[in-house]
Design a protein around this nucleic acid. Structure first.
Ligand SMILES: [Mn+2]
Ligand SMILES: [Mn+2]
Ligand SMILES: [Zn+2]
Ligand SMILES: [Zn+2]
Lengths: 130, 130
DNA sequence: GTTGTTAATAAAAATTATTATCAAAAAAAG
DNA sequence: CTTTTTTTGATAATAATTTTTATTAACAAC
C-alpha cells in the first residue's frame, strides 16, 4: 500500500481527501481516464466535482506526482509516476500492461532526452488466443 | 513532391480539393494540428469549413492515409503515414523531428505488436545551446 | 470560542472542441 | 443529359475543458 499523503507532501502538495482518493483510483487500476476516476469516486463521494478532478489531475501532473499517457484515438489515461517503463496497449480488450524499459535500447544523437513515452499497440496474450 | 491524388485513391478515398489541400499542409509541415491546418488553409480557401477538416482527418486516419500523434499535454498532431519512425519532441521550441526506428531495439514476449508509438521528449540540438 | 487569513472545493457559467444534421454542390454512373 | 452517390459548408447539438464565483475547511492569532 502506498502512502499518498507523504507522496503529495514530498511534491509540495497538500494532502486533501480529494487528492488522496484520486490517487487511490489511479493506483488501484494502474492506468485510468479522468471520466473513469469520476465515475468511480462519485459513488462513495457524490458531492465530488468533475472540475475538481480536472484541476487536481493537472496540478499533480505539474508537480510530478502522476503522468499523462496520451493514447491514439482515445482519451488520455493517467498513472502514478514511477520508474520509466513502456506500455503494451491491447487493441482488442484495451488493457494496458507495464513492461521494463530495458527491453528497448535507444541510441539517439544530437538530442537531450528528458523522458520517453513508448506505447506498443497490439494484441495481449489473452486476445491472441481468440 | 508527393502525389496526393494517387495516395488517396490507393486508399479508396476520392481525391477532393479539400483532402489534397489538407495533405499538402500536413506534408509541408511534417506534423501539424487540426487547428493549424484550418488557419493555414482558410487564407487561400476562405469557404473551407472546420467541420470538413475534422471529418476528413478522421476519414483519412481510418483509411490509413495519415496517422495521429498524441502528445503529452497538447493537442494531437497528424502526419502522412510512412515507414515507422520515432519522434524527438523538443520541450523548448516544440519542434518534432523524425528519426529512424532502428535506433531502438525492442524485444517483447507474449504480445503481438501491431504498431509502435515512440515519443522522446527533450531538447533539440538548437535549444541545447541556449 | 471568535476572528482573520488562506487555501480548497462545488457549483455555475463560459469557452473550446468535436460531432451530427441536412440542404446544396460536385462528382460519378448510367 | 439525367439519375444516383458522395462530399461539402453551414449550422446546430453535444461533449470536454477552463474560468469564475460563492461557500466551506483549516488553522493560527487573538
Ligand atoms: Mn504504466
Ligand atoms: Mn513523424
Ligand atoms: Zn487484450
Ligand atoms: Zn528545440
Amino acid at each position: 500500500m502506498v502512502d499518498y499523503i507523504s507522496l503529495l507532501k514530498q511534491n509540495n502538495l497538500k494532502a486533501t481527501i480529494q487528492r488522496t482518493n484520486i490517487l487511490k483510483s489511479i493506483n488501484r487500476t494502474g492506468h485510468i481516464t479522468i471520466d473513469e476516476i469520476y465515475e468511480e469516486l462519485k459513488i462513495d463521494y457524490p458531492t465530488l466535482s468533475l472540475a475538481t478532478i480536472y484541476k487536481n489531475i493537472l496540478l499533480m501532473v505539474q508537480h510530478g506526482v502522476i503522468v499523462e499517457i496520451p493514447i491514439s484515438g482515445e482519451k488520455s489515461k493517467y498513472e502514478i509516476k514511477k520508474d520509466e517503463h513502456i506500455h503494451l496497449i491491447c487493441k482488442s480488450c484495451g488493457n494496458i500492461e507495464d513492461r521494463e524499459l530495458s527491453s528497448c535500447n535507444i541510441d539517439i544523437e544530437d538530442f537531450n532526452i528528458i523522458f520517453k513515452q513508448i506505447n506498443l499497440y497490439g494484441l495481449c496474450r489473452n486476445c491472441q488466443s481468440k
